[in-house]
Amino acid sequence: MTKAATKGSSVMPWLVSALLVLALGGALLVQWLSPTGGKANPQDAAQVAAGQLLYGQYCIACHQGQLQGQPDWQKPLPSGRMPAPPHDESGHTWHHPDQVLFGIIRSGLVPPYAPVGYESDMPAFGGQLSDEQIWDLLAFLKSHWSPKIQAWQEDKTRQY
């Protein structure tokens, strides 16, 4: 066997092992970031009411009282960051499955929910809100969407 062939064969097991470790690490990260249990049910009056209280405490300052977001929400602020988007039907919140929305509320706009290095004013609420409270918030947001949008978003959530 040539020296080059020997070197190549000794690198291959290391490379395979490294790829397996990376894949396992990625799977564990996704599992850790994924919501556990729970569901945002916009037809559950108690869950929506709990979410409304939380929205008033944690979200209203940026996303506004009618969920309309900040003015010119699609244009960068002088800081280069984006304004808070609306959570009503005029925004894009409903374009995302529940798991992604849950992750953004819990972890902020960080990977895998935003590109590496992306800077946002959206804080991570995982240290302040329980998983159940995050589901309540999502139920409140979803309660403001039409039945057609709710059905579309629920289908997106099932497919995710």
Rank of each mutant, 00 (worst) to 15 (best):
M1C: 08
M1W: 03
T2K: 08
A4N: 13
A4T: 08
G8A: 14
S9W: 13
V11R: 12
M12Y: 06
M12Q: 09
W14C: 10
V16K: 14
S17M: 14
A18E: 08
L19G: 15
L19Y: 08
A23R: 03
G25K: 10
G26R: 06
G26A: 06
A27I: 09
L29G: 03
V30I: 09
Q31T: 12
W32R: 13
G37R: 08
G37F: 04
G38R: 01
A40M: 11
A40F: 02
Q43H: 09
D44L: 11
D44N: 15
Q47D: 01
Q47I: 02
Q47L: 03
G51F: 05
G51D: 12
Y55S: 10
G56T: 05
Q57T: 13
Q57W: 05
Y58Q: 13
C59L: 08
A61L: 10
C62M: 08
C62N: 07
C62F: 10
H63M: 03
Q64Y: 00
G65K: 13
L67F: 04
Q68R: 07
G69I: 07
Q70G: 05
P71L: 09
D72E: 10
D72H: 13
D72V: 00
K75D: 05
P76R: 12
P76W: 11
P78Q: 01
R81G: 00
R81L: 12
M82Q: 12
A84F: 12
H87A: 15
H87P: 01
D88F: 10
D88L: 07
T93L: 14
T93D: 05
P97W: 03
D98N: 14
Q99I: 09
V100T: 14
L101N: 13
L101H: 00
F102P: 05
I104V: 15
R106P: 00
R106M: 03
L109F: 01
P111D: 06
P111R: 07
Y113G: 00
Y113C: 00
Y113E: 04
G117P: 06
Y118D: 01
M122C: 01
M122R: 02
F125A: 03
F125W: 15
E132D: 08
W135C: 10
L137Y: 04
L138I: 11
L138R: 06
A139Y: 06
L141C: 03
H144W: 10
W145R: 03
P147H: 12
P147N: 10
K148W: 07
K148D: 15
A151G: 00
W152P: 00
Q153F: 00
E154P: 01
D155L: 14
D155Y: 08
T157G: 08
T157K: 07
R158M: 02
R158H: 12
